[in-house]
Design a protein around this nucleic acid. Structure first.
Length: 443
RNA sequence: GUGGUUGUAGCUCAGUUGGUUAGAGCACCAGAUUGUGGAUCUGGGGGUCGCCGGUUCAAGUCCGGUCAGCCACCCCA
């Protein structure tokens, strides 16, 4: 119209840019998860963002099919973007497990895509931080998974969290007793919403969507409403499952898991047996987890997972049992922000060096290098602007220290180290700068 | 995908029943202050009112569509 053919800069619905203030805590979270996973011997893997469509739709519920980004590539192949990290893991395991051997422990931190409608904290591109142990039925893996979740939140400096744990065997065993075995999936999906929508609505959904009778729904809800300390829950469950082999096995596993986790040093009641935890996904067959922040229960589970008997059945005859969990990165980040546990900074470096004396470029560069050599990040301002402006820049970005040296300081072979939060500065000999900075930052 | 709701400067918003050159605060840039930031004062830059179309002498304001955000359903991380 007016001759302007500039393209409007914008991001796709459900896709986001991350500015430094958002990306710095994000990377911190990812780094922390990575460190904890690695400390238990989980190894990193990655897989392609695109897979053959048939790989992704293999076990396709209609719901995931609807959310799947799919298209034909330039060679006419039908391809899709991964919508979680579990399906790629299944394909990966089927393809490579012979070389890797079992048990195989991996972590996978990567973006996934779902073309569903957006909402706060729910996007079309988001990141998952999964870890899984595959190729073993041993309860020790379930126990270790619990410990990893615990250590993860500990490392994130979150104090008030609860890992709720249950075992699908208890639920499915009892559903058999109630005559609901074939309706297990919709029943459990309804049960999964108990905390969110309440007893009445769950019962209604069990009747409407799963075809249970009101009496059956009531029995399931009674089971799920058992609460108390772990010992109390275990003893009540124990009575209820009397004579039901499968459910009994589930209760026994819960008891073993809790006692092992206590023996490993986790605080009592940090892990709570919660019979209502079901998880919507139908591939879980044993232990299931959900992790809640005590101060923000409304936000939902921030780390969930469970045990499955046969991960890769679609792709291989080999039976691969496993257990794992996934950290909900975006949800947790939103929670941390709400709890004010992330501080907003616009720089990853701690030290700022203003370009003060236009003739001393080489000296500044050398000074910066010496500070970096002791492991401290340094940003050097590129233009010899007025000092006040440079300090204003440093202040806004959130640097902790400024190392200021001009003509006078260089003449005396010294410089000022200024704490930008307190405005106090000290003069130190140039040769001692790296050491002095490390000391100041440790305070 | 369905329903509801919102959309004016980088951010938060104002803008009378449609009526001239669309405002404020914060932020940004410059100066007051040619070696010391977060305060103050002065000046400055920045908007085709999300986009497209319609009604009208006249549209930021009314209507339709579209895109995007938020909320609910669905499902989940």
């Amino acid at each position: 119209m007016n001759g302007s053919n500039r393209i409007e800069p914008k991001t796709l619905k459900g896709f986001r840019d991350y500015l430094p203030e958002a990306m710095i805590p994000r990377e911190w979270l990812i780094d922390t998860a990575r460190r904890v996973y690695r400390s238990y011997g989980f190894s990193p893997i990655d897989t392609p963002a695109l897979e053959y469509l048939e790989i992704l739709t293999g076990k396709g519920s209609e719901e995931t099919d609807k959310q799947l980004y799919k298209f034909q590539d330039h060679g006419g192949r039908w391809v899709g973007m991964r919508f979680d990290l579990t399906v790629p893991l299944a394909r990966f395991a089927a393809q490579h497990i012979a070389q890797l051997g079992t048990p195989f422990k991996r972590y996978h931190i990567a973006s996934v895509w779902r073309g569903e409608n957006t909402q706060r904290g729910r996007y079309r591109e988001f990141m998952q931080c999964d870890f899984d142990t595959i190729g073993t039925h041993a309860l020790a893996a379930d126990i270790e998974t619990t410990l990893v979740i615990h250590d993860l939140f500990q490392a994130l400096q979150i104090r008030d969290f609860t890992i709720k744990v249950n075992n699908r065997l208890v639920l499915t065993g009892m559903l058999e007793l109630f005559g609901l075995a074939e309706k297990a999936t919709p029943i459990l999906r309804a049960l999964d919403k108990l905390a969110k929508i309440g007893r009445e609505k769950v019962a209604a959904e069990m009747v409407a969507a799963a075809g249970a009778t009101p009496e059956q729904a009531d029995r399931v809800l009674q089971l799920s409403e058992i609460s108390g300390t772990n010992d109390q829950v275990l003893s009540q469950l124990g009575q209820l499952v009397e004579g039901r082999e499968k459910a009994q096995a589930g209760v026994a596993k819960l008891a073993d898991l809790v006692s092992a986790v206590l023996a490993a040093g986790i605080e009592n009641e940090r892990v709570r047996i919660t019979p209502s935890i079901a998880r919507g996904l139908d591939y879980y067959t044993g232990t299931v987890f959900e992790t809640f922040l005590d101060k923000l229960p409304g936000i939902g589970s921030v780390c969930s997972g469970g045990r499955y008997d046969n991960l890769a059945g679609l792709y291989t005859k080999e039976e691969l049992p496993g257990i794992g969990a996934s950290l909900g990165l975006d949800r947790l980040l939103a929670a941390l922000e709400e709890l004010q546990l992330v501080q907003k900074v616009g720089t990853p470096a701690a030290v700022f060096i203003p370009f003060f004396d236009a003739n001393r470029l080489h000296d500044y560069l050398r000074l910066a290098a010496q500070i970096r050599a002791v492991g401290v990040g340094v940003e050097f301002y590129p233009e010899p602007k007025k000092l006040g402006q440079q300090l204003k820049y440093a202040d806004r970005r959130g640097f902790r220290l400024a190392v200021i040296a001009g003509e006078n300081e260089f003449a005396a072979s010294t410089c000022q180290i200024k704490d930008l939060a307190t405005a106090q500065s000290t003069t130190v000999p140039l040769a001692d700068v790296p050491k002095a900075i490390v000391e100041q930052l440790q305070r």
